[in-house]
Write a protein that binds this DNA or RNA. Structure first.
Lengths: 240, 240
DNA sequence: CCGTTTCAGTGAACGGTGTTTACGCAGTTC
DNA sequence: GAACTGCGTAAACACCGTTCACTGAAACGG
């Protein structure tokens, strides 16, 4: 029945336990607590044994980041699926709220991924996950409003490259897409909006507001309204 | 002549060297390189000797953060003084640009202060420095436009408390100020704007934009224009 | 079935970290 | 000159990531 040999099954099981232990340590006690020895202690083995599974401590943390991002993607995907409205504006708003909710609910995970510089190929993990999910809804929204002339010339080349990345990501999601739905000016506004959203959430998670805010949700909602209006996705159904 | 005793002079000198060595290590090799032993090595002493000056490694890093913020405050102050225009809009714009310039020019220092959670008395260091400097100019700007009714009710108490903090900070700067110049709605917009500015700069310093941007300055300028307009400080002299 | 190979896991070791302790010694004070 | 204060040291402890030689069990080949 089981294709794999006994050794292979044991190895897979141990690897699962390593990831699980690492995640638990991170959530309970923060990034600094995720040490090789602590993980090994949880599994009842010794630290050098972990080198049979990962090349280094850094490699293990990188794997942990990937796991976390997969989980976040699944969480955001579920929240998006729960948004029954077909309105692109509602969908984007749902993903934005889902991102903030996940980040506030998983501060240690958020901090680890945020503070783990990736291969410098300009691929921020949160940005990838978010834009991959929100991309189709954004592309489905109105693309008028903005004229391509308003994007700074020096950014033209960068934007064209990112436009291609976006279109490819959207296409991967089964949705047929072409560059027509994502004109350069819109791509520019999307990026500015994502930076605004990401920055706001990061500061909120890290407690970087200039004073104690007992209920920071209205500030986020307020920002989100303005942001969605900026990319032409202000759904009048939601704006009261 | 010198009031202090020989011992006191030597102690002050050593403390200066400790801070200097710590700062150099941070700038050259990042936060993880700021080790007690590395600092001691630079001074030609041993690590335990540092405990005569600081209670712990954390305390030393905290001192380092304070030094960094003092430097940043001085840098921003100089840039603000160089802005000869009396226009509040120009002044605020100058401080915003100065903050970004300093952050991009001192990424390691920025990262250390950003990642060092302060006594949870809700006092983010960068926010304090910035608002203390920009506060007078903001208060001098027009305070109309916004109606106090548009601020969320749940935030009212928090805002009143922060309004007092702001007024006190502005007053400290010699400028006579009262709550009249900083109505609640304006305070709310200022906070939203600071979060936007701070978030943008943080993401830029940490390389968290979703793709490689060869020249990110236009994105910042664009954001800044929108931000200043939002708090009613869009100086037509600058907007082309 | 037996010899060989593969490989997960161990124990000891190395160099690094923050921190504590006992101690020597120079500067200060009376 | 004696007593005191306080800077710096050496040694030690517990932790960390990492390497290496080694054991023993699982897998494989004839």
């Amino acid at each position: 029945m089981t294709e794999a040999t006994r050794r292979e099954r044991l190895r897979a099981e141990t690897e699962r336990e390593i990831r699980q232990a690492a995640r638990a340590l991170l959530v309970e006690s923060g990034r600094d607590a995720v040490t090789l020895r602590a993980i090994a202690r949880k599994l009842g083995i010794t630290a050098p044994a972990l080198y049979r599974y990962y090349d280094s401590h850094d490699a293990l943390l990188r794997q942990l980041c990937d796991d976390i991002c997969d989980d976040m993607a699944a969480s955001l995907h579920a929240d998006l699926a729960a948004e029954t409205s077909g309105e692109p504006g509602c969908k984007v708003r749902a993903v934005c709220h889902a991102f903030r909710r996940w980040a506030l609910g998983h501060p240690q995970e958020f901090a680890l991924v945020f503070a783990s510089p990736r291969d410098p190929l300009g691929a921020d993990q949160f940005g990838s996950v978010f834009l991959r999910l929100a991309g189709p809804a954004i592309a489905a929204g109105p693309s008028g409003e903005h004229r391509d002339e308003e994007v700074p010339e020096v950014l033209h080349d960068d934007l064209v490259r990112f436009q291609q990345t976006l279109v490819r990501a959207v296409a991967e999601h089964g949705v047929t897409a072409c560059a027509d739905m994502l004109p350069l000016a819109k791509v520019y506004h999307v990026i500015q909006s994502w930076v605004r959203l990401y920055g706001h959430v990061a500061l909120e998670v890290f407690g970087r507001f200039p004073f104690v805010v007992s209920n920071p949700e209205p500030m986020f909602d307020n920002m989100l309204d303005q942001m969605l209006m900026d990319i032409g996705l202000d759904d009048d159904t939601h704006v009261r």
